[in-house]
Amino acid sequence: MKILVCLKQVPHQDARLDIAGDGAWIKEDGIKFEINSYDSFALEEALRLKDAGAATEVIVTSIGPDRVTQALRTALGMGADRAVHVKDPAVEGSDALGIARTLAAVAKSVACDAVFLGLMSDDSNASAVGPMIGELLGVPSATGVVKEEKTASGFRVERELEGGALEVVELNTPCVLAVQTGLNQVRYASLKGIMAAKKKPIDVKTAADLGLAGKVGAGAAKVKITKIYAPPKGTGAQILKGSADEVVAGLVGKIKELGLL
């Protein structure tokens, strides 16, 4: 079984978010990036299946500019076998469907049996791409996966519902699993792994290579962000000002007033 893992590189969770000149996204230069939190769990899950002998190859892929090479190298260092980097200005400005089309084309080109990816990206928070890939490939998909088990015909997975409830579903392979955070403990790349990763191949592809010229990118996008901005402030909290001691005195005063002290 070959597993393709989709990795998005997103602004670091503690990065400063300044609005870009066009007002429609954030300024990306000068900030730190990291692998989307959900996607690290997807990669770890695929690597565990390989360690257990259930998967034969783990391929990682990412769509993005030069900087995403770092995310792919990290994944190779953790144990992925090879990488496909879709690097093409013509893919930039894609909406979720454009990204899903591109990833579905990568999945076809590597002939994988399963696509593992994140439930949601930490920047666009869309939870869109996983089910879309499933539909485009004509295969089943499951989101919010917190447990998976390989069966003879595919996977038996547990999906997270609300308030701690779980839904158990069986999917035939090929299939798409969009994972929730926390389903495993993600490993770190070892020094040996990082050294070995230097020899692992990163295949660079364009939209045209994937047969998608004109089908993805800003021109093909059906939805567009027209404006991004800090949420309007409501009344908000009363902010205690002063030295740490003054602030603490204010907090104690409030807790007393609430009758809890």
Partner: peptide, 16 residues
């Protein structure tokens, strides 16, 4: 809608 886990808002227009 909210993006960046609640830190920013975005306006989205559909042409479909």
């Amino acid at each position: 809608r909210r993006v960046f886990n609640g830190k920013l808002d975005a306006r989205i227009v559909s042409s479909a």
